[in-house]
């Protein structure tokens, strides 16, 4: 089968999933319960995506755990996203050179 067809289906489905709710959910939701639910969604989703996946993100539990601890500490002190992200990465990279 032509790869163009695969790509078309893949891209089309992915776009529609994003577009339909985004374009046609125009009204403000009144219900306090639903609003609260949507308020918590970003935090819940990001948390589920990060934990436990972050510990597998470098292919080595030790380097990933070290990067996670550094990221947690820097995030706690409100450092900018890019600083936290790079520091986690550099920590994981540096720890990889330790002789254990």
């Amino acid at each position: 089968m032509s790869i163009a067809l695969y790509i078309l289906v893949m891209a089309g489905v992915t776009y529609l999933i994003r577009m339909l709710p985004f374009a046609f959910f125009q009204k403000k939701i009144k219900s306090v319960f639903v609003r609260s639910f949507l308020h918590y969604i970003p935090y819940a989703v990001l948390s589920a995506m990060t934990i436990p996946a972050i510990f597998y993100s470098t292919g080595n539990f030790i380097t990933a755990a070290a990067g996670t601890v550094v990221a947690l500490i820097l995030a706690y002190f409100n450092l900018p996203l890019i600083v936290v992200a790079l520091a986690a990465s550099l920590t994981a990279f540096g720890i990889d050179f330790l002789p254990f």
């Binding site: 972050i54 450092l79 936290v84 986690a88 990465s89 990279f93």
Partner: peptide, 27 residues
């Protein structure tokens, strides 16, 4: 090892997004 160390970046960014609001709000 450089490529794999990059793998943690996006997760680090997620933590930087969710931790500060979590400090302020128990819920």
């Amino acid at each position: 090892n450089l490529i794999s160390a990059f793998g943690i970046m996006l997760y680090g960014m997620f933590l930087a997004i969710i931790i500060p609001p979590a400090k302020k709000s128990f819920s």
